[in-house]
Each structure stands twice: as structure tokens, then as C-alpha cells.
């Protein structure tokens, strides 16, 4: 190889252009074929309704309260569920940072629900929390309630389902963010006179907050696309008629693909709005290194 081409190669490599870039090809093909193309296709379909102009499907979605309200319904389920998952994961992960006997077993127990799948979880919830399930039988027999408490086929059934499947995910993420924080920082704070609450709120939490924002976004996206549990343990024609149910009905009950695609695009847009708000707030936080110095 001549020195000129070598020099040219060197210049390119300095800008990050080298043969290793070929390693990105499979991922790029994957993203284009399975995400970008369907996404653009969906937009195109949503803009070609059978009747009316290009935006007729969107107009129909937003003028019909029955469709429009699914946005609020979905947010009302997914935002609290995602928030609960993140907030519940923090103290548990905080307690589980260090090494202790039985940590692995406890982690497995906390993480197993992620492997169960929504249908199994829903079935469990129906059996456990249903009108004749263990939970209500205990309540009735101990006299804590005189009528079965309704926790399935309504908002709470879906909420519990989202917590069971979403919590392990949030927990694993928070645990890994927490383990990235140098433990000597809290020890330093302790020698400076900070009690546990001050150590947590002044040192650990500010360093953890950006990670919590990311975790919230991911669990929110999972919860926002809730479909199986909204139908199985929810009330899919009423209080848990989420946006994915609306899209499903449009596509496979009314065979109106434009309306279904429009619902899906609206869904994506709402998610994007929530995530940009959270990430915007995150950028106001300290997001640098969580180490205490050289070491």
C-alpha cells in the first residue's frame, strides 16, 4: 500500500471512519427493516383514509370523544404505574446495594415476574384478586370487608399487572445505577456528620436522579403500550379502554387501517411528548461521573 493511501486512511481513522464501521451494518439493517420502514409505512397508511382528506383519520380520532379519551385513560394508567415502579424500586435497590447472604435468591425472586409474561400474570391476578380469590376470602373471613373488594376487570387489575411486570425491570435498572455510585461518597458524608437521610437525599439521590429519569422513561413506554392486561384483567370497554385497544378495534373490528394507523401514530407521539419532558427535566440535573475522584 502506498504511503498516500495510508496517510488518507489515517486521517479518516482519526475522524472515526475505519473498517470497524462495517460492524454497524447488521444493526442498521435491522433498525431500518423492522422499525423505520414500518413506521413510515404506518404514517403513509394513516394519511390515506378511504374517505376524506389526508388528515381525515386524525380528525376522526380527535373529534370522537370515545377515541380521544383513550389518551387520557392510557396516561392515567401508565404514568402512575411507571412512577410507582421507579419509586418502589429505589428503597429496595438501595437496601440491596451491598453484599449480603441470600442476595442472589432475593434478586431472582424480585426479577422472576419479568419472565412470566402478561397472560400468566393476568391469570394469576384473576385467581388471586378475583371476587372468590384468596385475597377476598381472607378479607371476608377476617371481617375486614363485608363484601368482596373488586380488584379485577377494572383500573386496579391493570395497574397491578403493570406493577408486577414492570417492577423487576425498574428494579434491575435502578440497582445497576446505584451500584455505579462510589460507596465511599456516603462514607465520606457520614464522617462529615450526615445522618442516613441526609446522606441519601443530598448525595445518593442527586447522583441517582438522572438514572431514575431514564428508568421512568423505559417503564413508562412499557406501561403505555399495555394491551393484553388491559383486556384480560381490565375493563376494555370502559375504564381501561387504552389507546392500543382503540387501535386494535379500528384495525380488526372495523377494518379501518387508516384509523388504526392514526391511533398508533398518536400513541407514539404522546410517548414522545412525555419522554421529551422527562429527558428535558433530566438535562437540568447533574449527569456526570458518579465516582469520588481518582481511584
Amino acid at each position: 500500500m502506498s504511503t498516500a493511501t495510508l496517510a488518507a486512511r489515517h486521517r479518516l481513522a482519526e475522524r472515526g471512519i475505519d473498517p470497524q464501521l462495517f460492524l454497524l451494518i447488521p444493526a442498521t439493517v435491522f433498525v431500518v427493516a423492522l422499525f423505520i420502514y414500518p413506521f413510515c409505512y404506518g404514517i403513509a397508511v394513516s394519511l390515506q383514509p378511504a374517505q376524506g382528506g389526508a388528515l381525515a383519520a386524525y380528525r376522526a380520532f380527535f373529534t370522537d370523544a370515545y377515541q380521544r379519551d383513550t389518551i387520557a385513560t392510557t396516561l392515567a394508567i401508565s404514568l402512575p404505574a411507571a412512577l410507582f415502579n421507579v419509586l418502589a424500586a429505589v428503597p429496595i435497590a438501595y437496601r440491596m446495594r451491598g453484599r449480603f447472604r441470600g442476595k442472589r435468591l432475593l434478586t431472582i425472586i424480585l426479577v422472576v415476574p419479568i419472565t412470566l409474561g402478561t397472560v400468566l400474570t393476568a391469570e394469576g391476578l384473576l385467581n388471586f384478586l378475583g371476587p372468590t380469590g384468596w385475597f377476598n376470602r381472607v378479607l371476608l373471613s377476617t371481617g375486614l370487608a363485608d363484601r368482596p373488594v373488586t380488584l379485577t376487570h377494572n383500573y386496579w387489575g391493570v395497574f397491578f399487572s403493570l406493577v408486577i411486570t414492570g417492577f423487576p425491570f425498574a428494579f434491575l435498572l435502578v440497582l445497576s445505577y446505584l451500584s455505579g455510585i462510589d460507596p465511599s461518597l456516603e462514607r465520606a458524608a457520614a464522617t462529615l456528620g450526615a445522618g442516613w437521610a441526609q446522606r441519601f437525599f443530598r448525595i445518593t439521590l442527586p447522583l441517582l436522579a438522572p438514572g431514575l429519569a431514564t428508568t421512568f422513561c423505559l417503564t413508562f413506554v412499557l406501561a403505555f403500550s399495555v394491551f393484553p392486561s388491559a383486556i384480560l384483567v381490565g375493563d376494555p370497554s370502559g375504564s381501561t379502554r387504552v389507546i392500543s385497544v382503540a387501535a386494535y378495534e379500528a384495525a380488526y373490528v372495523r377494518y379501518d387501517y387508516a384509523a388504526a394507523s392514526a391511533a398508533a401514530i398518536v400513541m407514539g407521539a404522546v410517548e414522545l411528548v412525555v419522554i421529551s419532558i422527562v429527558l428535558g427535566l433530566r438535562s437540568l440535573l447533574y449527569t456526570g461521573s458518579t465516582a469520588g475522584g481518582k481511584g
Binding site: S184, A189, T191
Partner: peptide
């Protein structure tokens, strides 16, 4: 507990609060 002993400590990796 350490917070009630009133000692100051300099750590090997300094343990400065990065934020």
C-alpha cells in the same frame, strides 16, 4: 456512628461529591 464522632477523614480516592 461515624456522623457522631466528629472526626474528619481524607479518603484514598478523595471521595469528593461529584455533583
Amino acid at each position: 456512628p461515624p456522623e457522631r464522632r466528629g472526626f474528619g477523614m481524607v479518603f484514598q480516592n478523595y471521595a469528593l461529591f461529584p455533583h
